[in-house]
Nucleic acid binder design. Sequence first.
DNA 1: CCCTTTCATTGAAACGAATCAAAACTGTGA
DNA 2: TCACAGTTTTGATTCGTTTCAATGAAAGGG
Lengths: 336, 336
Amino acid sequence: MVSASVKDVAALAGVSVGTVSNVLNRPEKVSGEVTARVQAAIDKLGFVRNDAARQLRAGMSHSVGLVVLDAANPFFTELARGAEDRAAAEHFTVLVGNSNEDAGREAAYLDLFEQQRVRGVLLSPVGNVIPRLEQMRRRGIPTVLVDRQADNPSFSSVAVDDLAGGEMAVAHLLSTGRRRIAFVGGPEGIRQVADRLAGARKAMETAPDATLEVISTESLTVLSGRAAGEAIRLRPAAERPDAIFAANDLLAVGVLQGLMLMGGVPVPDEIALIGYDDIEFAAAAVVPLSSIRQPSALIGSTALELLLREASSEAGFVPRQVVFPPELVVRASTRA
Amino acid sequence: MVSASVKDVAALAGVSVGTVSNVLNRPEKVSGEVTARVQAAIDKLGFVRNDAARQLRAGMSHSVGLVVLDAANPFFTELARGAEDRAAAEHFTVLVGNSNEDAGREAAYLDLFEQQRVRGVLLSPVGNVIPRLEQMRRRGIPTVLVDRQADNPSFSSVAVDDLAGGEMAVAHLLSTGRRRIAFVGGPEGIRQVADRLAGARKAMETAPDATLEVISTESLTVLSGRAAGEAIRLRPAAERPDAIFAANDLLAVGVLQGLMLMGGVPVPDEIALIGYDDIEFAAAAVVPLSSIRQPSALIGSTALELLLREASSEAGFVPRQVVFPPELVVRASTRA
DNA sequence: CCCTTTCATTGAAACGAATCAAAACTGTGA
DNA sequence: TCACAGTTTTGATTCGTTTCAATGAAAGGG
């Protein structure tokens, strides 16, 4: 029942283990006759290489880790796809962990990845992990931050300019005549949320007659959004905002559900709504959602490329902060 | 730069490697004074256990593999979450692979998982992998099929009765007076698709005056659905179906988009639409989608439990085919 | 026919952690 | 002081693969 090893293969084929290894790794070094005999033995025994042993010998794995804030968010699945495709091209595997916006789970995944001796880590951080990442780098495991710009210039990052994106979203709302803006998002400890809000505040400066209300949520999920939407719907009409900027599309979808429950508040007539990420479902929502598009797969593939470059460069690697521009996508939810 | 090993820790602490190992794995066997010295050395050197070495020694990993048809489908992310939660409780890790409905990628992931000596595999199969799975079982790696019932009674599976679900969906359409039904889905090689269609056919038998048209798609994605929806929209009105059953919600969302483009065909007035899976976005669609709900997280956790049980039972394990009942969820898209 | 070169093949050593029988302690009672 | 029973600690061995210096055999040159 226990699986066959090179030793068994070697014995059956009547060669040494070194030769079996050569057949596996440097077939050009081995004569045709021997190769055939070894192959036959491999097939007969159902030999499968033991990755743990290879890795132990090699000292490093052929994997990289990826920790995302929310594996159910299509933005991150797209990002992961981009990273995986790029990794596959280099014969690397991506191990995906879901921190669920929880610093504890994030740390647990980093532990795991260190124990696996991954080549590097792509991270969309929750807590303040910079000290931890510096420690990991000292141990030879580099990190590239994804979906948020590194404030520490010694780290590479691939992100979209969330400040500009937030500004863009609110400027758009203002340009359609809205004045009582609400920002729905949280927790503020998450950098993307903070930046998008900061961008929103910046846009507000251009309209002194407009007001910005901040409505905090527990997480960036449809459920949190629905709760926020319902709370707004239940307010007296006069106290409702006339436009909502949601920190991501999941929230926006939830807000929309919350607002429309029981023939509620019409969107965009009474309240305009814009999200962030432009996930595939945004266009398919009850009221097609305006959003700020991020090139998710491109972020993933670019980050992976930077990571592998940093991992393989002996020294003198210069970290890069790649910033893609966000793009406003206007749909029915913000039409006048 | 290369990381420290137990040997280094032992040297610094002035003890043997065996003692370091004991501190790590059986702290109760080691005196307080020594434990403290070893801990200090571990911290000082930044020692991190090498998983490859542990695994090699142990002979088996602490992971299970999961191969899904489409990692971007919320149904599967939910299923994965269920499996991961259950696995975490048993101190196991889940490695997720995305076959993307491609038999080649599926096989590649199975290869990878075998090399990693995973404890077992959860699989939502594309091709005919049964022979392969039997081979893996002989090598000590059991499989549990997810989201489709095993036709081979020697395999465990956790699924929803897709035949009943398909029947339920079409029976519902018929009960609202629809008569020209279309099934949108594919490829038919995927068992879930075939079963849901078979269920649809079964329901048709109760209504001799109704017709069922099958519209094949390349894949179970929003994009494929949109193409199908557009094709239907472009037909002369008389040749359009009056109800559509989409093989999953992603398709349904796409069909909806395709139908409604350029102020197209009204749903449900002219065409009713029902999907399958009841993903979170179904309720949030332009026209909230009726659907057949599957308990996705429960499928994942149940499958993981069966898998671990099979993996740890010496012999005489009796495979089980768990079948959950589907549930009809009626929303606006099929209202008369 | 011997010497050199080339080439395929060998086999021991390494990777890092876990195990476990044996050794080294400790303290107790005689 | 010694025997004995516990308790700690030791260190050689194991896991499966890769690597690489060494070996052997065959081919080519003089």
